[in-house]
């Protein structure tokens, strides 16, 4: 790693999508940003703004049309090299038990069975699911499944953890609990994290810094540094600073949301 350099650097990133017919759509236009080592970055933006596309490019799942991603100064050329990803959907392998899901990445790396079994056990414990090692995904609740997903991503010891609206399809109570658990896990196994979300509160509660993306093509409209100390707690959510940040972000998002409403009603 280059001393003092950013952990992750996104340089002049652009991505277009081509519909089967018609003009290509610009999803991301000349986007540049940096994420410091061990920083927790949240990205928020209107739906369909290209946040998920951005995360997939960072992971290496899809190639950019222009620009590049650097981790520790090295260009990203494909997935699975030091980055771990958690998706919104519960994409656990349904034919594997919880612990076998967590072991999956280690199997691909050729880690011997006893060693990877132990490592998987440790990560299952880290996400608080001792006793559920041998449960199958369909036997677990949505929140538990997502914790297995997190354990599975952490088990490959990524340097950067990417999360694409991981709590997006959970009910509000489960979501609040998982936010606390995620922070708890992150405090114990600290790593650079990028968290894409729809929820302003979630972004403020979790992150060190928040980037607000514009509607397509995705550009950075606003960068907010969250002033709260860690560990975070529930009281922060009702503090004046929290509400102030919330309002600032909402004002930027509202503009895009209104524009979209307008477009839809006029078309």
């Amino acid at each position: 790693m280059i001393a003092g350099g950013p952990k992750l650097e996104v340089r002049n990133l652009s991505k277009n999508f081509r519909r089967s017919k018609g003009e290509p759509i610009c999803a991301i236009d000349d986007l540049s940003l940096e994420v410091a080592d061990l920083e927790f970055l949240a990205i928020i933006g209107p739906s369909g703004c290209g946040k998920s596309t951005f995360l997939r490019i960072v992971d290496g799942l899809i190639p950019p049309d222009a620009g590049a991603i650097y981790v520790n100064g090295m260009a990203v050329t494909g997935p699975g090299q030091g980055r771990g990803m958690v998706f919104q959907s519960f994409d656990l392998f349904p034919w594997r038990s919880a612990i076998k899901n967590v072991e999956f990445g280690l199997e691909l790396r050729g880690v011997p069975a006893p060693e990877r079994r132990q490592a998987a056990r440790d990560y299952i414990a880290l996400v608080g699911l001792q006793g559920f090692e041998d449960s199958y995904p369909h036997e677990l609740s949505g929140g538990m499944q997502q914790r297995v997903g997190l354990a599975r991503a952490l088990a490959i010891k990524p340097e950067v953890l990417l999360m694409d609206e991981p709590f997006g399809s959970l009910d509000v109570q489960t979501r609040d609990l998982l936010q606390d658990q995620l922070l708890h896990i992150w405090e114990r196994d600290k790593k650079t994290a990028i968290f894409v979300t729809h929820s302003i509160e979630e972004a403020i509660y979790l992150a060190d810094r928040i980037l607000v993306f514009s509607a397509r093509p995705a550009r950075i409209e606003l960068s907010v540094t969250v002033p709260f100390s860690r560990p975070r707690n529930e009281e922060m959510k009702t503090s004046p600073e929290f509400l102030e940040i919330r309002r600032t972000i909402w004002n930027v998002l509202k503009k895009d949301a209104l524009a979209e409403e307008h477009l839809e009603s006029s078309s």
Binding site: F87, L108, A153
Partner: peptide, 27 residues
Amino acid sequence: DREYQQAARTLGARSEWAVFTSVTVRA
């Protein structure tokens, strides 16, 4: 489900063949 294949890739399946043998056949 393409999500399984995507998950396999992010977890370190380097080649299409690795994705196929680790996930696609099983699914």
